[in-house]
């Protein structure tokens, strides 16, 4: 299941609903991405982020996320998969994305969850602009994200 939305989601409620009534599920792996309050890898040296705005390509976003979910289901024996991605203005600490995978056994759940977020980062048409005291700056794609996605090719 894919959801692209402006509004926040409740990670706990999503987790509870995800396996409700499915007694063949042996494990769930769930990842939640948040807005970090600085740019870069070093909190002390990084530029503070006041907020960010996520833009997306309505239509293509859903299409790409559905393709990513279908690919995960093809690769692993999943009971279920869930991707929720937000757009619009978000502040530090806000939830951006949730991906979850459930399976009879943990290996498939862990691997599929990692796959979903890695592929989403390089294939789903979202763009972040960070708002800082120095002005607005479009986030540039990271080579590390490309490398993470390539592991699954």
């Amino acid at each position: 299941m894919i959801r692209v939305q402006r509004e926040d989601f409740d990670s706990g409620a999503e987790l509870a609903r995800f396996s409700q009534g499915k007694t063949s599920v042996g494990g769930i792996c769930l990842f939640v991405g948040l807005v970090r309050d600085y740019i870069g890898h070093d909190p002390a040296a990084g530029t503070p982020v006041q907020a960010m705005t996520l833009e997306h390509y309505p239509g293509m976003t859903e299409r790409q996320l559905e393709a990513i979910e279908a690919e995960a289901r093809k690769r692993w024996p999943l009971e279920d998969a869930l991707v929720i991605h937000r757009y619009g203005r978000l502040e530090p600490g806000d939830r951006i994305v949730l991906v979850a995978a459930s399976s009879a056994h943990r290996d498939a759940a862990f691997e599929a969850c990692r796959f979903l977020i890695d592929w989403l980062k390089t294939k789903a048409p979202f763009w972040k602009v960070e708002h800082t005291q120095e002005g607005d700056a479009w986030v540039e794609a990271r080579e590390a994200d490309e490398d993470a996605a390539k592991r699954w090719e």
């Binding site: 980062k121 763009w127 540039e140």
Partner: peptide
């Protein structure tokens, strides 16, 4: 047309 994507 768009830049490389940066979601997630």
């Amino acid at each position: 047309f768009f830049p490389p994507v940066t979601g997630g």
